[in-house]
Amino acid sequence: MLDRLNEASEFVEEDPGGAVDVAAMARIALTSEHHLRRTFAVLAGMGLSEYLRRRRLTLAGAELGG
């Protein structure tokens, strides 16, 4: 199960600035969108939306500072 969730997370990392297809992530993880969001929140300590927001801010800061 964790391997599939990691694959779904890698799907986001391919283009973190782009639109996120949660349905596609759920298909990769072989679960429902609801279960994917809940499991992600438990494992990451934050919801998927918050993770994406923080990830995008980190990348934007790296572009400005680097």
Rank of each mutant, 00 (worst) to 15 (best):
L2I: 04
D3L: 05
D3A: 06
R4A: 06
R4N: 05
R4S: 06
R4Y: 05
L5K: 06
L5M: 10
N6A: 08
N6C: 08
E7D: 12
E7L: 10
S9W: 02
S9C: 10
E10M: 13
E10L: 15
V12K: 09
E13T: 10
E13H: 13
E14H: 14
E14M: 13
E14C: 10
E14S: 12
D15F: 06
P16L: 04
G17N: 14
G17S: 11
G17K: 08
G18P: 09
G18H: 09
G18M: 09
A19G: 10
V20G: 07
V20K: 12
V20A: 11
V20P: 08
V22C: 06
A23C: 11
A23L: 13
A24I: 09
A24P: 09
M25I: 08
A26Y: 04
A26L: 03
A26Q: 04
R27I: 11
R27F: 13
R27K: 14
A29W: 00
A29N: 01
A29V: 00
L30M: 14
T31H: 05
S32C: 01
E33Q: 10
E33I: 03
H34K: 14
H34D: 15
H35I: 10
H35P: 04
H35W: 08
L36F: 15
R38K: 12
T39P: 10
T39G: 04
T39Q: 10
F40I: 04
F40M: 03
F40Y: 07
F40V: 02
F40K: 02
F40C: 00
F40D: 01
A41M: 13
V42W: 11
V42R: 15
L43C: 03
A44Q: 15
G45R: 09
G45S: 06
G47E: 11
G47H: 08
S49D: 15
S49I: 12
E50T: 15
Y51E: 08
L52K: 07
R53L: 14
R53K: 14
R53C: 13
R53T: 14
R54Y: 05
R54E: 11
R55M: 02
R55L: 06
R55P: 01
R56W: 00
T58Y: 05
T58V: 05
T58M: 03
T58S: 03
L59Q: 04
A60N: 09
A60K: 09
G61M: 00
G61Y: 00
G61F: 00
A62D: 04
L64V: 04
L64Q: 03
G65E: 09
G65K: 12
G65A: 12
